[in-house]
Simulated assay, not measured.
Amino acid sequence: MEITAGGLLEVRITPADVGKRVSVRRVEAGLSGGPRFTDTVGVLTSWDDGVLLITRKNGQAVRIAESTLVAGKTVPPAPARRRGPAASFEELARVSARSWQPLESEALGGWTLRAAAGFTRRANSVLPLGDPGLPLDDALARVTSWYTERGLPAYVQTATGAEGTQELLCAELERRGWAAEVSAQVRIGALAPVADVDAPEAEAVRLTRTPDEEWLGRYGKVTDPALARRMLVAGPSVWFAALPGGRAVGRCVVDGRWAGFAALAVDPAHRREGLATAVMAALSRRALEEGASAAWLQVETDNPGALGLYDGLGFAAHHTYHHYRAAR
Rank of each mutant, 00 (worst) to 15 (best):
Tyr147Leu: 12
Gly109His: 08
Pro85Ile: 08
Ala317His: 10
Thr14Ile: 11
Gly33Gln: 10
Gly260His: 05
Asp302Glu: 14
Leu31Gly: 14
Trp100Phe: 14
Arg21Glu: 13
Thr158Trp: 00
Arg122Asp: 02
Gly34Met: 08
Arg98Leu: 11
Gln101Phe: 09
Leu307Met: 12
Val18Ser: 03
Gly312Asp: 10
Arg218Glu: 04
Pro102Cys: 08
Ser67Asn: 12
Glu149Ser: 14
Gly235Arg: 00
Asn124Glu: 09
Gly274Arg: 06
Val186Trp: 03
Ser145Met: 13
Met280Ser: 13
Ser96Tyr: 06
Gly256Ala: 05
Ile54Asn: 04
Gly72Trp: 04
Trp100Val: 12
Val205Leu: 04
Leu309Arg: 09
Glu290Asp: 15
Lys73Ser: 14
Ala263Leu: 14
Gly30Thr: 09
Asp224Thr: 09
Glu2Tyr: 11
Ala78Leu: 14
Arg247Glu: 10
Ala326Leu: 03
Asp267Gln: 11
Pro79Glu: 09
Ala265His: 01
Pro132Met: 03
Asn124Ile: 10
Leu8Pro: 01
Glu290Thr: 08
Ala327His: 11
Thr301Met: 10
Gly133Ser: 12
Asp224Tyr: 07
Ala162His: 13
Thr112Ser: 14
Arg218Val: 07
Leu288Asn: 03
Tyr155Thr: 01
Ala179Glu: 15
Arg150His: 01
Gly256Asn: 05
Gly274Leu: 05
Asn58Trp: 02
Ala234Ile: 04
Cys170Val: 15
Ala139Tyr: 09
Ala123Thr: 15
Gly235Asn: 04
Leu307Lys: 06
Gly246Ala: 02
Asp49Val: 06
Gly59Asp: 03
Arg325Gln: 14
Leu307Ser: 11
Arg63Asn: 05
Gly177Cys: 07
Ala180Val: 15
Arg25Ser: 13
Ala171Phe: 03
Arg286Trp: 02
Ala162Thr: 13
Asp131Glu: 13
Val186Lys: 00
Pro35Gly: 10
Ala192Ile: 02
Val222His: 06
Tyr324Lys: 07
Val238His: 00
Arg272Ile: 06
Trp178Thr: 06
Gln101Asn: 08
Gly256Pro: 04
Leu307Arg: 08
Tyr324Phe: 15
Gly260Trp: 00
